[in-house]
Design a protein around this nucleic acid. Structure first.
Length: 285
DNA sequence: AATAGGGTCAACCGCTACGTA
DNA sequence: TTACGTAGCGGTTGACCCTAT
C-alpha cells in the first residue's frame, strides 16, 4: 500500500542541519554541481534524504541567495505577481532574483497577508474585502496565465528565473476576463502594472531594452534565452503544449510549434492553447 | 526572572509532472 | 502504452525566538 519512500528513512537524519552537514553539501556541490539529488547524499557522505539536500541547497546554501529583509519594492512586486499567478511561489520567486519560493511563501503568509488585510484587501482574491467577488472569472484568468507559465516552467527552467510576459494586446487575449478584471484595462505589455515582458531564461532576469510592439497576444522569448544558456548554441524551446521542451538545438518537428515552415522569421514560434474551446494563439519570438 | 503567547522560518510531507525503459 | 523513478512544487508542521505580562 502507498508509495515507496523516497529514501531509506531508517538511516537518515531529520531536522535542522548542522554546520558540518552544510559544509559537506556545499563542498560536494561546488565540486560536482547540482543534480541527481537522490544519489547525492551517499556521494557526499550525508545521512540525509536527497529531497532534504535539495531543499537545503536551494533555500539556504545557494551562493546567489539574497538574505535579509524584503524591500518595499519587493513587497509590491510579490503582491502584484500573486494577484496574477496565485500561489505559484516558484514562479513568483523566478521574478525576484536571490529569493526562494519557500522564503516568499513564508513572507506572504507572515507579512503580506496581514498587510493586505490592513489595506482592506482580500489576500486571495486581491479584491476589496467588502466586495462580493466573482471568483470564477478571476480564477479562470489566473488559470490561463498560469498555463503559460507552467508550460514554460516545464521546459526545465524552474529555478533559473524564468520570466514571461503575457502580452494582452488584443481583446481576445483577455476575453475571458470579466468587466471588473483589472487586466482588461491595462495597456499592452503591462499587466497589473508589472512589466510582464515574457521571456524564458536560464539566466537571471534582465529587463527588456525596449517596449514591445503592439500586436497579437504574445508570449515572448528572448533571442538570448531561446538559446538556453546564454551562449552561442541555439537550443530551441518548443511550446506546443504536448511536446513542450528542449530539443537539443533542433527545432521541434511537431508541426505546430517551432517547425520552420510555420514562420518565416527566425525564433518565432506559435502554439495553440485549447482553453475552453476558444483558440488562443501565442507567438514566441 | 519566569512564562505564556504569538511570530517566524527551516524543514518535512504528500502529491504531481515528467522522463525513460 | 504502461510502469517506475526522480525532481520539483505547494501546504503544513514544529522548533526557536521575541515580547508582553
Amino acid at each position: 500500500m502507498g508509495r515507496s519512500p523516497c529514501c531509506e528513512k531508517a538511516h537518515t537524519n531529520k531536522g535542522a542541519w548542522t554546520k558540518e552537514e552544510d559544509q559537506r553539501l556545499i563542498t560536494y556541490i561546488k565540486a560536482n554541481g547540482e543534480g541527481c539529488w537522490r544519489s547525492l547524499p551517499k556521494a557526499a557522505g550525508l545521512l540525509r534524504c536527497g529531497k532534504s539536500c535539495r531543499l537545503r541547497w536551494i533555500n539556504y546554501l545557494r551562493p546567489d541567495l539574497k538574505r535579509g529583509n524584503f524591500t518595499e519594492e519587493e513587497d509590491e512586486l510579490i503582491i502584484k505577481l500573486h494577484e496574477l499567478l496565485g500561489n505559484k511561489w516558484s514562479l513568483i520567486a523566478g521574478r525576484l532574483p536571490g529569493r526562494t519560493d519557500n522564503e516568499i511563501k513564508n513572507y506572504w503568509n507572515t507579512h503580506i497577508k496581514r498587510k493586505l488585510l490592513a489595506r482592506g484587501v482580500d489576500p486571495q482574491t486581491h479584491r476589496p474585502l467588502n466586495v462580493v467577488a466573482d471568483h470564477h472569472n478571476h480564477y479562470h484568468h489566473q488559470l490561463q496565465v498560469q498555463r503559460h507559465f507552467d508550460a514554460a516552467a516545464s521546459a526545465g527552467h524552474h529555478h533559473n528565473h524564468d520570466h514571461f510576459t503575457v502580452l494582452s494586446n488584443s481583446p481576445e487575449a483577455c476575453s475571458h476576463s470579466n468587466d471588473d478584471e483589472p487586466s482588461s484595462a491595462t495597456p499592452p505589455s503591462r499587466h497589473l502594472g508589472i512589466d510582464l515582458n515574457l521571456s524564458i531564461s536560464l539566466a537571471p532576469y534582465q529587463p527588456p531594452q525596449e517596449e514591445d510592439q503592439p500586436g497579437e497576444p504574445l508570449i515572448k522569448q528572448d533571442d538570448e534565452t531561446a538559446s538556453g544558456y546564454a551562449g552561442n548554441a541555439t537550443t530551441t524551446v518548443c511550446l506546443c503544449l504536448n511536446r513542450l521542451g528542449l530539443h537539443g538545438g533542433k527545432r521541434c518537428r511537431c508541426g505546430r510549434g517551432g517547425a520552420p515552415s510555420m514562420q518565416a522569421s527566425t525564433h518565432m514560434f506559435r502554439f495553440i492553447t485549447p482553453l475552453d474551446n476558444t483558440t488562443s494563439t501565442t507567438t514566441m519570438t
